[in-house]
Nucleic acid binder design. Structure first.
Length: 295
DNA sequence: ATGACTACCAGAT
DNA sequence: ATCTGGTAGTCAT
């Protein structure tokens, strides 16, 4: 069924990159609501209020993938294939310890977990610097400590307060202050694949319960372009029946995108949920497919 | 009590 | 043959 979208006129700032994702997001919503009847580029463009060629260009520049390609990349069948491919990969793939650097997540991440004591302190004695940055998926709220990246959240322009509250609530005892200068390099490093290099691994600090950390650790092992079922993660961490609890832990991941919680899907390949909005999950998955295709 | 889960069964298409 | 919806196990918060 087609939603009668108002002929919303975009008044200002159409060229700003932040608004680019706005357009893309609407198109993605459109696609995911109507993907069953294979909307044509013309229809999508009409709904978005722009010319087919303009949309084609914008979308492709954004995702590295045409709207059509994106449509396919986010399909159930596709997700199933990602799942089916090689499941043993979780067991074998990378050698990872809690401390040693390793090749994880094409982004190249070094991660360490905070001690249980530090976790219980709920951030006490920790300084968190934060900043908002435009990224391919809207606004990114980046939070860092002197030990590395501790938080990454998404939001749309206008809802910065909520995102910040959400994040700060996770470490209520920390000293939070804004410092875009400190966070900007992280944003640049994270969202531009050109900067994903092993010689400067991204330092990440995982702050959570033991169970959560083990789940996030498992997520870190999923390479780009692959997906894993919650139940697979459950088996991987040695609690085959805890898939539901795994879902909760995945959902609690404070470092979204970097810890690729978007690559966790239902056993059927269905995208079951995302703390920062299902549309965003689709966007990230589609964008990743585009990065792979362009590589 | 509550889920970003699953396996399973009954109807419906 | 498939899809949909409800149900009953499960387990860390």
């Amino acid at each position: 069924m087609t939603i009668a979208t108002q002929p919303h006129t975009i008044l200002l700032d159409e060229a700003k990159p932040g608004h680019e994702y706005d357009v893309v997001r609407r198109v993605i919503e459109d696609i995911s609501e109507n993907y069953r009847d294979q909307p044509s580029l013309e229809e999508l463009a009409a709904n978005a209020g722009m010319s087919p060629t303009a949309l084609q260009k914008l979308f492709t520049r954004w995702a590295g993938l045409s709207p059509k390609g994106f449509l396919q990349a986010v399909t159930l069948d596709h997700a199933r294939r990602l799942l089916a491919s090689d499941l043993p990969l979780l067991e074998t793939a990378y050698e990872v310890g809690y401390s040693g650097p390793g090749r994880l997540h094409d982004l190249f991440v070094t991660h360490e977990a905070m001690s249980p004591g530090e976790f219980k302190a709920r951030g006490g004695g920790l300084s968190m610097r934060y900043g908002f940055h435009i990224c391919p998926f809207g606004l990114a709220l980046v939070m860092v400590t002197d030990r590395g990246l501790a938080g990454l959240a998404f939001c749309d322009p206008g809802s910065e307060r909520e995102a910040l509250a959400d994040m700060q609530g996770r470490w209520p005892n920390a000293h939070h202050f804004e410092d875009m200068g400190a966070t900007a390099p992280y944003a640049a490093r994270i969202f531009d694949p050109a900067n994903w290099r092993s010689d400067q691994p991204l330092r990440v600090v995982l702050i959570g319960t033991d169970f959560q950390v083990s789940v996030w650790n498992a997520l870190l092992k999923i390479p780009m372009g692959k997906a894993v079922a919650y139940s697979d993660i459950a088996s991987d961490i040695g609690r085959p029946k805890a898939s539901r609890a795994v879902g909760a832990a995945v959902g609690a991941n404070p470092v979204s995108f970097v810890v690729p919680c978007h690559r966790a899907v239902g056993k059927s390949g269905a995208l079951t949920g995302y703390h920062w909005g299902l549309t965003r999950k689709r966007a990230i998955l589609g964008w990743e497919a585009g990065q792979l295709a362009t590589r």
